[in-house]
């Protein structure tokens, strides 16, 4: 339902009392309202929807999720290898 993309905060400024930021989305810079992320700082990443930052991205969780996938991959590769060996021994 909701197209939202991750961007890095490059600069924070004030527009008539509303906290705003310049956010970098893979080389594209767009003005984003930061009113809903009062604690965000320069260098942090946020998820942005219709010009509003709605969630700060947690780097540690992101890495952890990727690590889970990697472990799953290793597990899978290990299983595949095991199966191949079993198949080979079954064939011979």
């Amino acid at each position: 339902m909701c197209l939202a993309v991750p961007g890095r905060v490059e600069r924070i400024y004030d527009a008539d009392g509303t906290p705003m930021g310049k956010l970098n989305f893979g080389g594209v810079v767009k003005d984003v309202c930061l009113a809903y992320l009062p604690d965000i700082g320069v260098g942090d990443y946020a998820i942005v929807h219709v010009g509003f930052a709605i969630s700060q991205i947690d780097e540690r969780s992101a890495l952890e999720t990727l690590r889970t996938f990697a472990e799953l991959g290793i597990l899978q590769e290990g299983l595949d290898e095991l199966r191949e060996k079993q198949d080979e021994s079954a064939e011979s």
Binding site: L3, V5, F25, G26, G27, V28, K30
Partner: peptide, 12 residues
Amino acid sequence: SPTVASACELLG
């Protein structure tokens, strides 16, 4: 180009 890809991502 990576920047075009990003801009497309942003605007859907």
